[in-house]
Simulated scan of single mutants.
Amino acid sequence: MTLGRPTRLDGSERTDHLMSTLVGVVGVYRRLSQFSGRRRPPVRTVNRDLSLTVETIRPEADDVVSLRLANGGPLPAWRPGAHVDLVLPSGLTRQYSLCGDPADRSHYRIAVRKLGAASAEVHALTPGTRVTVRGPRTAFPFVGRGPFLFVAGGIGITPILPMVHHCADAGADWRLVYTGRSRESMPFLGELPDDDCVWIRPDTEYGVPASGAELLEGLPDGASVYCCGPVAMITGVRTDLALTTATAVHFERFAPPPIVAGAPFQLTLRRSGVVLEVPDDRTALDVLRETRPGTPYSCRQGFCGTCAVPTAGGGSMRVCVDRGTAVLDL
């Protein structure tokens, strides 16, 4: 559109003084935009990598160790529910919840249960080892005013622990149900508030794992539920929550989510022309790693972005969770 002599909205040729003013303002804005564009500095990439030293590593429960990570200065702030990406000397990357005190920025604390190759490498670290940490980031935000019900299973206590201490310090209305195979397998039991609000529920003392209904027993009306632990426990809680008055439900799992009602699809690797068949009960990542074992991944839940693979169309596919026929730029 060309801005010439302004006319009235009714189409007449009489000068519209309001439109004249608007044309002048637009012209000045264009000139200023061109000037500021020439002067604007280039956007710099933000480096979120922290080089930290393992200060201490100590056992917290059967097959669980905690690490204190620091660099001698104050670390980026975080809130309960946050996690970091830990890049190990081998190059493997995994997410671990921060389970220390958010007010103490002199170090980060994480806890790791020995389950696979990455966790075994963590357990083998020694004080003085340098590691790279990315973050903190929050995929399990702690929000709301309560009342709160926290449900933790085993190592799932790690993101829950700072939330519990926050509630205890703030005088909030809260309860914690902490379950696990046995007391010996449950980290940080000695750091929980000595309070009637805490129920420790080991399987060995009750004979069987807890059902979702049992874990939700005594749920306050209108409570927010925060649940972290193994898939079976989360599934039970989510199933039985439908019978409660909970107003908000928040989950974090330490295993890939189950595939529900999945459909088969194909992946084409553009550079080699190889076509991969992904069945209805497997992820693209699982199948892709059979052909390309070095395909990076971490959380397997779709939020960290480590497994994102560029597609031929210029987009990307998070192969741990995304499903659908695609041509990958590989």
Score class of each variant (00 low, 15 high):
Met1Ala: 15
Gly4Ala: 10
Gly4Leu: 12
Ser12Val: 03
Arg14Met: 14
Asp16Val: 06
His17Ile: 15
Leu18Glu: 14
Val26Gln: 12
Gly27Val: 07
Tyr29Asn: 12
Arg39Asp: 04
Pro41Tyr: 03
Arg48Trp: 14
Ser51Pro: 09
Leu52Gln: 07
Thr53Lys: 10
Ala61Cys: 06
Asp62His: 13
Asp62Ala: 06
Asp62Tyr: 10
Val84Glu: 04
Tyr96Arg: 06
Ser97Ala: 11
Ser106Tyr: 07
Tyr108Ser: 01
Leu115Lys: 11
Ser119Asn: 02
Thr126Leu: 14
Gly128Lys: 00
Gly135His: 01
Thr138Tyr: 12
Phe142Cys: 07
Gly156His: 11
Ile160Cys: 08
Leu161Val: 03
Pro162Arg: 07
Met163Phe: 11
Ala170Trp: 02
Val177Ser: 09
Gly180Cys: 04
Glu184Met: 09
Pro187Asn: 02
Asp196Thr: 13
Trp199Val: 14
Gly207Thr: 12
Gly212Val: 02
Gly212Ser: 05
Leu215Ser: 00
Glu217Val: 02
Gly218Val: 01
Pro220Ser: 06
Tyr226Trp: 06
Cys228Gly: 05
Val231Trp: 07
Thr235Asn: 14
Leu241Asp: 00
Thr244Leu: 11
Ala246Gln: 05
His250Ala: 09
Val260Pro: 07
Val260Thr: 14
Ala261Asn: 15
Ala263Tyr: 08
Arg271Phe: 09
Ser272Leu: 08
Val275Pro: 09
Val278Thr: 04
Asp280Leu: 05
Arg282Ser: 08
Leu285Lys: 00
Arg289Thr: 08
Thr295Val: 12
Thr295Ala: 13
Val319Gly: 00
Thr325Cys: 06
Val327Leu: 04
Val327Thr: 10
Leu328Tyr: 00
